[in-house]
């Protein structure tokens, strides 16, 4: 038994060495592969959206995300090519690099070529990027308009938004059942006008909304209302704005820089206290200076008299 076990042992050791060698080689291969992969490309995805702003500017935005540390996160500086598809042909519009939020934005022309059902198609692609795998995404929307009717000086603060789309005969057709959201324009964004700010259009294509009584306006009491369709399956994002004077009037600060401890000019009590205290001392000083001067003059005067 004993010799056999030694043999066994030797055999086992041989096997082990072989195994280690194989594992070693394998790991080198894997490492090399991983290396090639890291020098190769990262998986990327594109999400697209379409905006029609209040000033009728149309933009398409592609959000590029890539797998960083196992999670998809927006990536910057990726070149995205935008194509316009028409009659099964793709025409390169422009390439844009993503910003640090991962967004690539292009401005679309107003007379986009439409297909038979009046839709347009924009495709965003990552192509032959040195860092990322190819990816693409497309949007397919038709054009809609929101028209706001409101009386800026009305006390009822009622806004009616009429949503229309372009019919095949060139006529504007009302859109039924489209959700319109009502916002108030603020300095850095748009704020929902109230808790339930989404209203669906009726068969006339109209959605009505009453703005709350207290919304801070500017110094003239005016603010801008915004009506939006968001991520609509047919129309994408469509937005309209209109000025009103329904807001509460912002009182202009009469004296934005009052006399205060933290302002350039000191409060009067402080000024007076310091002036009286040190003014008094300096008054005495000057009297003393005068006396010293007199000391100098004294012998001369006594000599005269």
């Amino acid at each position: 038994m004993k010799p056999k076990s030694t043999l066994d042992c030797r055999y086992f050791l041989k096997r082990l060495t072989l195994l280690i060698t194989i594992i070693g080689l394998f790991s080198v291969i894997v490492a090399a592969q991983d290396q090639s992969q890291s020098q190769g490309k990262t998986e990327a995805t594109i999400t697209m959206s379409y905006f029609k702003n209040a000033d009728m500017r149309r933009t398409a935005v592609a959000l590029v995300k890539a797998k960083v540390n196992g999670k998809f996160a927006p990536v910057k500086n990726v070149k995205v090519n935008f194509y316009l598809e028409n009659d099964k042909t793709q025409k390169l519009l422009e390439f844009v690099k993503t910003d640090n939020k991962g967004h690539a934005t292009i401005l679309l022309q107003n007379d986009l070529p439409l297909d038979d059902s009046l839709y347009f198609t924009i495709i965003a692609k990552i192509e032959a990027d040195p860092l990322y795998e190819d990816a693409q995404e497309q949007i397919h929307y038709t054009d809609a308009n929101i028209i706001l009717s409101l009386n800026p000086h009305d006390t009822t603060r009622l806004v009616t938004a009429k949503v229309t789309e372009l019919g095949k005969d060139g006529k504007e057709l009302p859109v039924n059942g489209a959700e319109v959201k009502f916002y108030v324009q603020r300095l850095f964004g748009i704020m929902p006008a109230s808790e339930d700010y989404a209203v669906s259009t009726d068969e006339k294509g109209e959605a009505s909304f009453t703005f709350p009584k207290i919304i801070p306006g500017d110094t003239a009491g005016s603010y801008t209302v915004v009506a939006r369709m968001e991520d609509n399956a047919q129309f994408g994002n469509v937005e309209t704005k209109a000025p009103t004077s329904w807001g509460t009037v912002l009182a202009v600060e009469k004296d934005p820089f009052p006399r205060a401890l933290w302002e350039p000019y000191a409060p009067l009590p402080l000024v007076m206290t310091i002036s009286i205290l040190f003014g008094g001392v300096w008054f005495v000083y000057f009297y003393l200076f005068f006396q010293i001067w007199k000391i100098k003059k004294d012998p001369i005067e006594t000599a005269k008299s």
Partner: peptide, 25 residues
């Protein structure tokens, strides 16, 4: 104007490998 938020993936991958496979790689 804004900050570059996202690190480039190649840098991150490089860092991972360094830890994983030693000096050669």
């Amino acid at each position: 104007k804004n900050e570059n938020n996202a690190g480039t993936p190649s840098e991150n991958a490089g860092r991972r490998n360094f830890l994983k496979y030693g000096a050669l790689t």
